[in-house]
Amino acid sequence: MANSVGVDGYIHIEGFEKFEREAFDKKKIRAAMRKVGKLVRQKAQMNVGLARGQDSYPVNRSGALQDSINFKLSRSGFLVKVAPYLTSAMGKEFYPAYLHFGVRQGNALKPLAAGAGRGKSNRRARGERSKHVAARKANGWRIEPRANYMSDALQDAGSDVRAILSRAFADALG
């Protein structure tokens, strides 16, 4: 597992910018992108499954997060996106977002009751909103943000991804 600090979740393969997309055999590119998507997906699933909460990764309790990690190939075939997707096992709440961004302690700011504010528009007193937001930030985390296991998977498999895609782009030109 790699260090999550400052990891970029994007890889660019250099040397093929001067060619138009039509110059490549799309079947070979799509096959390579699917292969790369599977590789990164497996690394990400392994990061979640084997970490058991270490390195500030999420704890794998039911396996729903691990099963939700999948890849999608773009229509053109020149892009693959590996991410956790909403599944029926998760219900309506997409909790990978809660794990990644975290949840602050305290209540969200709700609208004022009728007649509780100032004037016709029922507005809060000056500075009340900022006081509430500052108090909420000071409370800490209800769910702390977790490490980005997806970016770590891409970083761990980065050299293999570059090799596969470079070979595929070179073969697809011919």
Rank of each mutant, 00 (worst) to 15 (best):
L154S: 04
S88F: 05
V5I: 15
E144H: 02
V48Q: 05
S68G: 10
Y95K: 08
K131L: 13
A153W: 03
S130H: 04
S166G: 04
L79P: 11
V103N: 06
Y98C: 03
F19R: 06
Y95S: 04
D25Y: 09
L109G: 13
A114W: 11
G63W: 10
A138S: 03
E20I: 12
A168F: 00
K27V: 08
V80T: 13
L112I: 00
E128M: 06
W141V: 10
S130Y: 03
S159M: 15
I164F: 02
Q54N: 13
V59E: 05
L109P: 08
R167S: 15
L173D: 02
G106E: 04
P84V: 08
F78K: 01
K43N: 10
R75K: 09
N60W: 10
S4L: 06
F19L: 06
R123W: 02
V36W: 07
D67M: 04
A163W: 00
P84W: 01
G77I: 01
V103R: 01
V161L: 00
K72V: 09
R61T: 10
P84T: 01
I143C: 07
G106A: 01
A64H: 06
V80N: 02
A113C: 00
R104V: 07
A2C: 03
Y149C: 07
A135R: 05
D67R: 08
R167K: 15
A44N: 00
I13Q: 02
Q54H: 05
F101T: 10
Q155E: 14
D156T: 02
D55E: 04
A89S: 11
P96V: 10
S166L: 03
G77M: 01
